[in-house]
Amino acid sequence: MFCISLIFVLNIKVAGIDSGVIVNIFGNVVNESGKTNGMSAEKILGYIQSGIAIAIFFVSLFISLFTVSGVFPDLLKKGSIDLIISKPHSRYSIFAQRYSGALITTAFVIFYILIFSWVVLSMKFDIWNLRFLYSGVIVLFFFYNIFSIMTLLSMLLKNGVISLLLTYFMVFILSPIIAAIDRFAALEDSFYSPLVSFLNFCLPKISETVVGISDFVMDKDISLYIFSGPILTGTIALIVSVYIFKRSDF
């Protein structure tokens, strides 16, 4: 439905003229290259694509977390886990199947929309910006970090709803607050300053990631710092989750 409506909603017309291109969105001419100092078609496409990539980032993150929040708590429920563990599979394999299943589902949601919008926009503009397509990997990496943390919470709390709410809180509330405190050095002289910096390094950085996605789509350089901490946190959370699952009695 999203993809079909995208064709109509975008309603973009890109026409070539002698001295440049005319870009018409929703019936309004937003660019007449050669006549004004307007943006190039690449730049307009970049803005549209980064807007879509950011929307996909938020929507897929929110929906995917909600959808996969039950993957591990449901598995760990008494009476359910017995049936699965009694099958001839190692615990590593059971964990990997569940985890990768959630990741693949999310990847499908992200790339399904991304590929379709990329094809429509690229055909309209006749500019094939692969970076827009690759931005899905950033979204997926971000999801990997968050999902790993949510998996750890699920392993510890064995409750899908509480794990989901804590994850939402961490991503959408705590992370921006910590980032703001750290950025404005509000606790510069405080005893807590190193802790805030450490948390800011570890926690998924939602605002920086949004900027990073936009910059990446617009062909600008992005800092790997925004990913290194969260990837480390996500990987540690994943390893601890596997360890708990491997060692637990059910």
């Binding site: 009476g79 017995d82 001839p88």
Partner: peptide, 30 residues
Amino acid sequence: DPSARERTGYLSENHRLPGYLNAEQFLYYY
């Protein structure tokens, strides 16, 4: 060794079967 469980069947005391499946789907999945 997980292979020890290849030739076993198990009915647990308080099993929780997935309510969204029907009997055929449940048996096929497991």
